[in-house]
Computed example of a mutant assay.
Amino acid sequence: MAEKGIIFSAAMVVALLAGRKTQTRRLIKLPKEFSRPDMGGWEATATGGEGVFTIAKGKRLPVPERAAIWNQTTGTTIGMPYAVGDKLYVRETCRAIERKSGQDQFQYRATIDREDEDAENVPNEPDAGGWGDLSIYGRGKRDRKNFATCDDDLTFAGPWVPAIHAPRSTSRLWLAVTDVRVQRLQECSEADAKAEGIEGFACIGGQAWRDYSGGPGFNMTDPRTPARRSYSTLWDSLHTAEGARWQDNPWIVAVSFDVHRGNIDAETANG
Results as ranks from 00 to 15, higher is better:
Val63Met: 04
Gln72Asp: 00
Ser135Pro: 00
Arg228Glu: 07
Asp86Pro: 04
Ala148Met: 03
Ala67His: 03
Thr45Trp: 00
Ile69Glu: 01
Trp209Thr: 02
Ile112Asn: 07
Ile69His: 02
Ala193Gly: 11
Asp133Cys: 09
Pro31Lys: 04
Ile55Asp: 02
Gly102Glu: 07
Leu61Met: 11
Ala202Gln: 13
Ala244Trp: 01
Thr111Asp: 15
Ile264Cys: 07
Asp151Ser: 11
Ile7Leu: 13
Gly79Ile: 00
Ile164Ala: 15
Ser237Arg: 03
Phe257Trp: 02
Asn146Glu: 14
Ile97Tyr: 02
Arg184Met: 08
Tyr231Cys: 10
Phe201Ile: 08
Arg168Gly: 04
Asp265Ser: 13
Glu120Asp: 15
Arg229Leu: 13
Ser101Asn: 14
Ile204Pro: 00
Asn146Gln: 15
Glu43Pro: 00
Thr155Val: 08
Ala18Arg: 14
Val161Ser: 01
Arg142Val: 15
Arg168Tyr: 09
Gly271His: 08
Ile7Lys: 09
Ala269Asn: 10
Ser171Leu: 09
Val182Asn: 00
His260Met: 14
Ile97Lys: 02
Gly48Arg: 01
Leu27Met: 11
Ala269Arg: 12
Arg60Thr: 14
Ala266Ile: 04
Ala254Pro: 03
Pro37Gly: 05
Arg114Trp: 12
Ala11Cys: 13
Pro223Asn: 12
Ala44Asn: 00
Glu196Lys: 08
Arg245Ser: 12
Pro64Glu: 05
Gln72Val: 08
Ala67Cys: 11
Pro223Trp: 03
Trp246Pro: 03
Asp179Ala: 11
Pro64Met: 04
Gly41His: 09
Ala128Arg: 01
Val13Gly: 06
Leu185Thr: 04
Met12Lys: 11
Thr93Lys: 13
Thr240Gly: 10
Val259Ser: 03
Arg210Asp: 09
Phe8Ser: 04
Gly132Asp: 15
Ile264Glu: 03
His165Ser: 15
Phe53His: 01
Phe257Lys: 04
Ala15Pro: 10
Arg228Phe: 08
Ala18Ile: 09
Trp131Val: 14
Asn263Gln: 07
Asn146Pro: 04
Glu242Phe: 01
Lys4Met: 13
Ala163Cys: 14
Ala195Gln: 07
Asp151Arg: 08
Trp209Asp: 03
Ile69Phe: 01
Ala44Asp: 01
Ala163Phe: 10
Gly5Thr: 09
Arg229Met: 14
Val161Pro: 04
Val180Lys: 01
Asp236Cys: 07
Thr221Tyr: 00
Ala176Cys: 06
Gln105Trp: 00
Val259Gln: 05
Tyr82Ala: 02
Arg114Leu: 12
Glu65Cys: 07
Glu92Pro: 10
Thr54Val: 06
Arg181Ile: 06
Arg99Val: 00
Ser230Cys: 12
Pro31Cys: 05
Thr221Ala: 14
Asn146Cys: 13
Met12Thr: 09
Ala241Ile: 00
